[in-house]
Structures are given as structure tokens and as C-alpha cells.
Design a binder for these strands. Structure first.
Lengths: 231, 231, 231, 231
DNA sequence: AGCTAATCGAGACGGTACGTCGTGTCTTTTC
DNA sequence: GAAAAGACACGACGTACCGTCTCGATTAGCT
């Protein structure tokens, strides 16, 4: 959604906005935020800077729009009929997303927003945080609501905490993978998420009967938490 | 802890590092990350740029050190006797940490490391990651080990997923708070974390009595996930 | 006199040329030549740039037309009966002209033409030069011709040098005046030119009685003229 | 004379100012004032823009200094013993100067000064006008003063007008030459100036005896004043 | 005491990006 | 079918900061 176009005069090139957002994402993923520049995006897209500034006043706004444009297609409304199935769907989707460059960018921008003083570009970027990251957490929340309807979850449960745990778990997991693990996760995200979803679902079940016993979690390797695994 | 000083030659001004970190914090709190510049810090401190570059190679490292220097150490060694109590201690400490500017920067740098190509700055930043996140890692490892000893957690459990969920949950929670919620969370971080920790502990308990539910679906096909092709 | 309008198609807004020239003059007087821009004129007039470029190819041409439109024609056809009187008339007219903004721009453009490579803009600008400077040329030619008829000037005289001296003298004089002298010159241009014209007329008089003086030296060698080698 | 250098800190590269001025002149003569840009000068010299802006705040000041640096060597203090000889020396020197690119530039800048609003860069550029163009006119004035001492000129003569006429005549002449005439003038500037100097000297002589007679001027061609000849 | 070696202020330097502005061309709609 | 309006590629503006560098002036410990 670039800024309001006008009626009279030469109309804007309809393809250009898309090309610019694509170029912006390429630029960002290649160089990171620190070297993300309007100049660079224009260069990469083979256009003048005016074409950019006509549509987006700052590079933040450009990046936000660009991210949104590729995030939107991520439909997060599974309906497998079970809490476990729904969460597995969403979790593996999210993992796939945050393993890709757009996911990286999304998290980094979200962080930049969190770091930024509120009075600065707050208005511009807050909407983004709500839209993109919030969307993901909202998807999980929705699944939890369905679970309440099916009786799989107490109505009074803290759905926000649950959603944060799963969402955060996925994100942190995606960041902590070694290159070889990364490859494996890309190849089969559902298998990658199976264990974590099972863990979360177990926490979600409304009323656990007491009786402790041996867990059936098949673990990962139990060699303690390496630094990379933690973060 | 600025970079290794040398033996011979004129010794460093012992006060200067402190003055520079103070100036860095003033600069950061006044203008935010976006306008945080080495030049600005030097200007504010009334020194040349060399005094900065002799101690810190990048502004990230400077800021991290500066923030660290004013942060009291987290409570990372709880011993409440129960898994729930220990995790609540750690979770609230982490929340407190990631609500403050030190936590923001820490996450930012961690993300930069995760995203960065391994060959770039790896040596520089890995040391940092170890330093800052090290205590978190040690604390969580210790808690989980204690839980295994107490029989609250199966030795073969996927500790990695559990840690990711708790850690990620706390971080995401801290990022998603509105200003007013933020204030509340700062005031009483334990209350803020109570619900999430309870949820996690429930998931951790070793053996659920009943079956895991009808979660045998093979997950349909990922309709709506055109993400990969869009990148 | 904007460039040739066409017959068919949408007719030009008859008022627009005038409005544009007015806007150009406002812009020029407000900001000076350095910040005189087509864009600024278009903005001030509230029209698109095409309306300007359809009529004037360059901002010089626009400004010249605009200035011309508000300038009364010079007195360039004197007939006082004497060479001195005629030249005084023309010289003071020229002085007046080159003291005003129209004269400035005229000289600027003339210099651009003289400096420019012949193949560049030659066609465009030659027409302009003819139009603006044409009357000066006609007037001076006529005066010199009359002087020949009256016997005040030898038919074989180097009229070119004479004209250059007078014309150049006036222009240089107009450029070298201090603000206060400028004011005085505008108030009474004839008095300002009296001395110079007298000097020129003395040189023009056909035949000096005595010898030309001891000017037979072959001029030494040009010590101190290292200019050419320095370029 | 770039702006005041400082005491402390790394000293300025002593050669750089010269290289920059050379690059500036190259740039100007190649492209004219309209396309004369700091950026272009920096590019040509292979330096950053900071090196330019450190020394000259505006491109006008840069150009002025650059011109001065090549104008200074033009020693204009002939001493042939006669008015005619002195003037011929100076006139041919000036002609040579104004036929070259530096001369073009000098005149154009002088015009820009005359055109500019007084309150703008007036302080900056006025000095230049006085220094460079004034220097040339002053040289002529000095010769005239010597002529007064030798009795070749009335003490009460309007030396300013005379200087303007000769100076202006030379400049206008240099601008009005066709390419072929230009070549001829460069080859032998004294011959080119002979006629004009003779004309001026005749005007200068203190008291003409009456008696008209046939001029000895060997004219140019007498076919009227073509436009180019006038300007 | 003289030497060596580092610190430190200061600032030059080659780069690069900022966001604004102006250029001249091009592509539409409007009359 | 030209006029008019705005999009567009291009590039300069002057400022700011980057990280490296070269200075001079300190300020120690080591011969």
C-alpha cells in the first residue's frame, strides 16, 4: 500500500511497486538493516530514487510494505479437527517462514521496533508489528479458541501465554539451528516441530490426572544445552 | 570490558572507559539506536574517535558493554526446591532483562549473529554471545538437571524444545507488551510470568495418564503456503 | 514570443503564456538567477512543467521573454546630427539596458553561445542572439555609416574595433559599478557615458596631424606570460 | 587560499588543494558552469567530497580560488617606454588570456557575480571580481598613469573609461571571433590587437590638432558589422 | 637521562547514504 | 490530436557518519 496515488497525469507504473518491494527484500536479506538503503534498493531495481520516495517516505515504510506483501499469502487457518493437528500445521508453517530470509527480516524489524523510542516512527511501525508478528500469534490464539469449543482447553486458560510460548519457541528454535539442522528442518518442518508441539499440547490439556510416570518424549540428544541451542 | 589493553607504552586513562560508556548511554537514551553513532559519543564525551576505536571495534560492542556496566546481574541461580519455583525465578529475571534496554540490544546482536554469514565477524561476535547469554544458558541447564534429579523430568526429555519454548515465550512476551502492560510487568515480573510458567510446567510433567488425543492426522497438504515460491 | 504554436488539436490557453511569464518574473526577482528553476516557475504558476517546456526550451529563453515583455524598447535610432551626439544616445541606452536584469541575462546567454561548442544548441540560441542583439547592431551600423557620410569617419576605418571598444566599454563599465555608482548611472546614463564617448570620438576622428609617436618597438618578449603553458 | 586550516590533528595533504583546483578547472572548461559540480570535481580528482567541502564551502569559492591560482602568473607590468607599446603588450596578453578556457571562465564568473543578488554570496564573490577582473583593468590604468608621467596623456583624463574601453574591446573582440579568426589571433595576438590599440591611442593623445584628413587605419573588411563582430 | 611504545585529542581522508530538488523525457487523460 | 499533468530515470545538493589514517603531545616503563 504505497502512499495515495493521484488521478490526473501519467499513471504510476502498475508493476513498479511490486518490483521495488521485491528489490527491497533482496537488498535487506543480502545486507541486513544496517546497510539497507533507499539508494541501494533503487540501484538494484534499476530505477531512480524518486520512484521510491514517491511511494514511501522512509525506508522503514518501504520495508514494512515489502514484508507485508510476502507475508499475506501465508494462510494460517488450518482445520484438521484436533488441537494437535492444528498446532502442528501452524508451527511448521511458521518454522518454514522463519527459516527463510523474509522471516529473518520480519523478526529483525520487529526488534528494531521494540528497540526504537516510542515517540519515533512509532505510528508507522507499530501497525506493522501488530499486523505481521501479531498475525502469527493471533493464528495460534484462534486455534486455541477452537480448542476451547471442542473441550480440549479450559475456557479460562491464558491463551496469550500459550501462544507466546509456541510462537517464541518456533522462532528461537529456527534461530538456533546449525546449518545441517537447518537443512533437515527445511526438508520436513512437520517432523521438526512434532516434539515441541507435543510438549505444548501436553501443557494445554485441561486437567491432568495426577500419577507421575516416565515421559514418552523421545528427546533430542540429552547432552545439555549448547549455546546455539539455547538461543 | 574493552578489548585487551597492552603492557608497554602509556597506560590507558583508567577513568576514560567509564566516561565513554556513560556518554554512550546518554547518547543512546537520548536519540535511540537509529541515531546512535560513534562520532556522537566521542563528541559528547569530548574525546577523539581514537579513544573509542581503541576500545570497541563497533558501536554494537560499545553499547553492549555500556549497558552491561549499569545492569545488576540477573538472579539466575534459584533454588526454591521445585521446578515451578525455579522456572518462575528464572523466567521473571529474564523478563526483567528483556524489558530493559540491555535485553533489547542483546537480542538485536544475537539476531545479527544468527542472520550473519558465518564467515563475517563470527570471531568477534561469538565471544560476545558467549559472554552475555552464557549465564542464561547455565541457569536453565542447571534447573532442568535439578528437575531430572527430583524426578520431575524424564532424563530423555526434549530439553531443547522446552528451553526454547520458555526462553522464546519470555522474549516474545516482552516484545509484544503495550506500554501500560510493560509498566505493569516491570513492577511485578513474577506475577506476569506465573501463568506462562504454570503452563510450561504442566507440559513438562513426565507422564500424562490418558492417551495423547486423536493427533494421528498426516496433516493434509499445506494449502495456502506459497511462501517458499514467493521468495 | 513562445515557440511556434500549432494549428490542430487542443488550442493553447491564451492567458497561460502571460501567467507563466509573470510567474517567471516573480520567481526571478524573489530568488535570483541561481535558484531560478523551471520547476519553481511551474509550481508558482500552479501548472505542470510541460506547459513551460512546450513554450520555452530552456530557462534562459523563458526568462529573456519574460523580461522583454515588461521592458520598453531602447532608444536605438538617434539622429542628433553629430557623431558625438549619436554615440552618446546609443551608449547611454546600452548602459541603461545592461544595468537592468534584461541586459544581464542577455549577456549571460550571449556568453553561453560564444563559449559553447558550435554544434551544441547553435540553432536554438542563434535565433535568440539575433533577436535580442539585433537592434544594437543595426543602430551602431547606422551611426557609423552616417559618420562616414558626414566625413567624420574614413570609409576604410576599422569599424569593427571601434564598435567593440564602445560596446565592450559600456558593458564592462556596467559590470564594474559599485551599488552606489550603479544608482547614479541609472539616474543619469548620459552623464555617465559622456566621458567615454568623448574619448571614443577623439579616437575616431579621421586624421591626426602629428606622427603616431615612437611606437615602433617590436614589443620585447612576453616575459611573465606563462599562462598558456599553465593550462 | 582554502579556508583557515587548523593547528591540531592530522595536517592537510599539502598537494591536495592544488590537485583539486586543477581538477576544478578541467571540469569547468570541459562542461561549463551549468554542469560544474562538486561531485564531478571530486570524482575527477579521485577524492571524497569531504576533501572539497573541507576547503571550500561552495562551488563558487572553489572556482574562484582555482581561477586565481592560474591567473596570478599573468604578469601585466610591461615597460616598453611608450604608451602604444605598453598597451599593445597588455592588450595582446589579455587577448591571449580571454581566448583560452580560463579566460572564458573568468568572464562567466564575473557575469554571474554581476547578476547575483547582492545579499547572496556577495561577500564571497565580490572579492573575486575585484581581484581578477579588477586586476586586468588596473593593469591598464597603471599604464595610463605612466603615460601621464611621460606627458602622453592629460592628467585629468578619465582613465577609468579608457581602461574599460580597451579591456571591454579586447574581451568583446575575443568573444566575437569566428573559429578561423580565433586561430589566427592565437597565433599572433599582437598583430590582432594592433589596430584596436592604435585606435585607442589616438583617442588618448592629449590634444589633437584639428585638421581632418584620411585615416591610416587599414580597416578590416568594410562590409558592415555582422552580428558576430558586434558581440 | 634517553629510548621506546602506547594513549589520546584532533582532524584529514575516501567513501557512502541521507532526503530534497531540478532536469528533460515519456505516458497518460482531458479538452 | 495537441495540451496539460504527473511519473520517471538521473544525478547534484550539502550534511553526516563510517572506519582508517596521520599528526603532535603526552606518559609511562625499560634500559
Amino acid at each position: 500500500m504505497p502512499s495515495e496515488p493521484s488521478a490526473a497525469g501519467r499513471p504510476r507504473d502498475p508493476d513498479l511497486s511490486g518490483r521495488l518491494m521485491t528489490a527491497a527484500l533482496e537488498e535487506y536479506t543480502r545486507t541486513g538493516w544496517a546497510s539497507f538503503s533507499m539508494q541501494g534498493v533503487a540501484r538494484r531495481a534499476g530505477v531512480g530514487k524518486s520512484a521510491l520516495y514517491l511511494r514511501w517516505a522512509t525506508k522503514e515504510l518501504l520495508l514494512v510494505d515489502s514484508l507485508e506483501s510476502v507475508t499475506r499469502p501465508l494462510v494460517m487457518d488450518p482445520n484438521t479437527g484436533s488441537l494437535h493437528g492444528d498446532l502442528l500445521e501452524v508451527a511448521s508453517s511458521l518454522l518454514q517462514f522463519y527459516l527463510g530470509p523474509v522471516g529473518w527480516v520480519t523478526m529483525r524489524v520487529a526488534m528494531d521496533i521494540a528497540v526504537e523510542e516510542p515517540e519515533l516512527h512509532a505510528a508507522d511501525l507499530d501497525a506493522y508489528q501488530t499486523k505481521v508478528v501479531g498475525m502469527h500469534r493471533a493464528a495460534i490464539s484462534k486455534i486455541l479458541t477452537s480448542a476451547v469449543e471442542r473441550g480440549e482447553l479450559n475456557a479460562g486458560a491464558d491463551k496469550r501465554s500459550m501462544a507466546s510460548c509456541l510462537f517464541g519457541g518456533v522462532v528461537v528454535h529456527s534461530m538456533a539451528l546449525s546449518p545441517s539442522e537447518r537443512e533437515r528442518a527445511c526438508a520436513d518442518p512437520r517432523a521438526e516441530m512434532e516434539s515441541m508441539v507435543a510438549f505444548v499440547v501436553r501443557g494445554i490439556r485441561p486437567e491432568p490426572s495426577s500419577g507421575p510416570g516416565p515421559a514418552v518424549l523421545e528427546s533430542g540428544d540429552a547432552d545439555g544445552l549448547r549455546l546455539q541451542e539455547l538461543l
